[in-house]
Amino acid sequence: MITTQEFLQIDLPAMTAAVLACVCCALVGNFLVLRRQSLLGDAISHAILPGIVAGFLITGTRAGLPVILGALAAAVIAGVLIEAVRRFGRLDGGAAMGVVFTVMFAGGVVLIEQGAARAVDLDADCVLYGQLEAILWLAPQTWADLADPAVWADLPRQVVTLALVTLLCVVCVVAFAKELAITSFDPALATTLGIPAGLFHHAVVVLVAIAAIASFEAVGSILVVAMLICPAATARLLTDRLPVQLWLSVAIGGLTGAGGYLLGAFGPSILAGGPADALNAAGMIATLAGVLLTAAILFAPRHGVLARNRPRHRGAAGHQMGKDVVSDAVTH
């Protein structure tokens, strides 16, 4: 069995990072799912690669502002290019995304290979799977140490970044809950009410990009997509009310992050009844998210496949959600 010290130094920071990444992605992912733009998350998480590599090659470390700025710049460039290809090229949105993000990702892969000649500390693996296992918090030795403020000053950078980004996402969503709801469900109505739907569309994209960039280092580019979509989709199947869906998705995201990490780290040794090598935690989190989504698809009380096929429910499951939110917003 592992010692308290090992848990505090290795597992606690990694698990915290996983939970925070899942929570912030799950929260902003709701608006992607509602706006039918889930694949924008996919596109952004691929397209930021060249920005990250460029930032890394300039500074030589994976930490720090240049990498984040590079990623953000790449995300904005990707957004502009997708829109340009869609509008001026008159291609459908999916194809425009597909062209832009695959080419940008390929550019990032070439940059990695070219840069790897100069810097050893960079490979495609950490981009794809993330590096949860590399998040260490060496300061605490025992539980009692957690009371000591000096220990907290040594908190891993990734955890601090993720905590700040999660806070930002929560604040934005709470502060603009009404506007986000109306622009998601009915952009035309939002515009007539004087709410700039276009502005909120871009704001959602930027928020998703920030959440994806912060989580990217922890869980990897493709698993960011799982956290953006799966918890929100699961919650969407369980409720018809937006506030409930938001909090539910956050809870599902947090549970998935913690559960997936624990399963990956300790599942093998429990199954084997002795010490065993850990499984990839980020992959396990995505797997667990998929299991929960499958369960919701099958067993959700009103929108699940089983409930839908029961005769007495047929036709009862209307799309009440949008109407509720909009009428709430109008009457307030």
């Binding site: 996919d42 493709i222 997509v225 998929g290």
Partner: peptide
């Protein structure tokens, strides 16, 4: 959403 969920979950299972 279905495309994104299938893509990422299958890939996650593969990574595990």
């Amino acid at each position: 959403a279905a495309i994104g969920a299938v893509l990422s979950v299958f890939f996650g299972v593969g990574v595990v």
